[in-house]
Design a protein around this nucleic acid. Structure first.
Lengths: 219, 219
DNA sequence: GCCTAGGATGGCAGTTACTGTCATTCTGGA
DNA sequence: TCCAGAATGACAGTAACTGCCATCCTAGGC
C-alpha cells in the first residue's frame, strides 16, 4: 500500500502524461461508456432489467465482465449513470437565474435541464421505454429516487449560497430551502407519473408545468 | 407445478388447519421477525450496515442464514420492513379525517402515524441512530425513498377515492393529488434532514410542522 | 399417549453482482 | 523505436440471494 502511494505520487508530480493525452483518454473513455450503455439499454428494454446479466452486456459489446465494471460501478449505473452529469448542468442553470427570482420559478427552470434531455431528438426513441422501466423495476426506481435526492442536496446548497450572496441568508435551522426543493422535485416525479400514465402523449414539459402549478411556497 | 396447485387447493378447501392454529403461527412468526430485526439493528448501528453480513445476523439469533431469508426478503428489509405495516395505518388515518378537510391538512395528519412511531418510548433509543444510518447508507436511503413512493401511491389512490365519494372527483389526468402528496412527502424528508442536522434535538413533530408550513397548495 | 398434517428449519448447491490482483496488451508521445 | 501508463482479460474470492430436499417440531384428532 505504502509503495503504491509513493509511486502514484511520483508519477503525478513528474507529470509524465501530457494534458492532451489525458483529454484523449478521457474522451475515448466516455465513448466506450456510451457504447456500453446503449447496447445495454437495448437489451434491458428487450428482455427486462433483471433478466439481463452483466455477462450478457459484456458479450454484446465484446468485452469481459470485468471491464464493464471498470466503466460502471454497478448494473443500475448503466441505466442511471447519466444523471450524475445532470447535476452540474442543473447547478449551472440555477446560477444562471437572476438572484432575486422567486425560488419556485428558479426551480422550475432547473428542470429544463431534464426536460430538454428527454426531448433530445437522438434519444427520444428510448426515453419512454427506459423511463417506464425505471418506474417499474424496484431497484431502478430506488436508485433513481436516490439520485434525485443527491440533486436536491446540491440544489439546496446552491440556494443557500445564493440567498447569502443576496444578503438575505436563511437561518441555519430554516427548513424552507430544503422543503421548497423537495416539494419541487416531488412535483417532478408526479409529472413523470402522469406523463407515463397518459401513455407519454403530450409534452413532458407541459406535465411538469401543470404539476408545479398546483403547489407553491407559502407567504 | 400443477400437482402443487392441486394439493394446495385441496388443503385450503378442506380447511384442515384451524383458524386458531393459523393465528398462533402468525403471531410467533411476527415475534421471531421482531427478534431478528432487533438483534440485527444492534449489529448494524455497532458495525455499520454493509459491514454486517446476513451470516452475522443469523449467528446472533442462532439461526441459519437460510431461515433469516425466510423472514426477510432482503438485507434492507431487516431495517426497512416495518414501513410496510405503516402504509395501512396511514390509509386508516387518512380515512379517519373529515372528507371536506383541506388535503394539505389531512396529509399532515397522515404523518402523525410516523411521528408517533418515532416517539414511542420503547424504540426511542434506536430511532436516531437507525434514522442516521438510513440516510447515510446509499442502499438504505434508496430503499427508504422507494417505500415512501409506495406510501404515496397508496395515499394518492385514497385521496382520489375520497374526492369521488365527496362528489368532486379529480379529472383523470389532473396531477393535483399526486403533486400535493409528493410535495408533502418531500417536506417530510426535508424535516427528517433538518431534524438529523440539528442532532435530533427538539421534537421531530415540530420539524415536520415547520417544513410543511413553508409550502402548500395553490388556490 | 400416539398419529398425522403441515409449517419451520437446516444444509447444500447454484446464480449473480461485484472486488482485488496480476500478467498482458495497447497507445500516444519522446 | 522505445517507454510510461492506461486498458484489458483472466482468475479467484465474497456476499446476497434462491431452489430443493430431508428433517424436525407442533397442534389437533383419535
Amino acid at each position: 500500500m505504502a509503495v503504491t502511494v509513493i509511486l502514484d505520487g511520483a508519477c503525478y508530480c513528474l507529470g509524465i502524461m501530457s494534458e492532451k493525452q489525458r483529454d484523449l483518454r478521457e474522451r475515448t473513455r466516455r465513448a466506450v461508456r456510451n457504447e456500453i450503455a446503449e447496447a445495454a439499454n437495448e437489451l434491458f428494454v428487450e428482455r427486462g432489467f433483471e433478466a439481463t446479466t452483466i455477462d450478457d452486456i459484456a458479450a454484446a459489446v465484446g468485452m469481459s465482465q470485468r471491464s464493464v465494471f471498470r466503466y460502471f460501478s454497478s448494473k443500475e449505473e448503466v441505466v442511471l449513470g447519466k444523471f450524475d452529469l445532470v447535476v452540474d448542468d442543473m447547478l449551472a442553470a440555477l446560477r444562471a437565474r437572476p438572484a432575486d427570482e422567486a425560488v419556485w420559478t428558479s426551480l422550475r427552470r432547473v428542470f429544463d435541464v431534464l426536460t430538454s434531455l428527454a426531448e433530445m431528438p437522438g434519444s427520444v426513441r428510448m426515453v419512454e421505454p427506459i423511463h417506464r422501466m425505471v418506474f417499474e423495476t424496484p431497484v431502478l426506481l430506488a436508485g433513481y429516487l436516490q439520485k434525485l435526492q443527491h440533486m436536491q442536496d446540491a440544489v439546496v446548497a446552491e440556494l443557500m449560497d445564493r440567498a447569502e450572496a443576496a444578503g438575505t441568508p436563511y437561518a441555519a435551522d430554516d427548513p424552507t430551502p430544503r422543503a421548497l426543493t423537495a416539494a419541487a422535485f416531488g412535483c417532478l416525479v408526479a409529472a413523470q407519473h402522469s406523463w407515463l400514465a397518459s401513455g407519454a402523449q403530450g409534452s413532458f414539459t407541459d406535465a411538469v408545468d401543470r404539476a408545479m402549478a398546483t403547489v407553491g411556497p407559502r407567504a
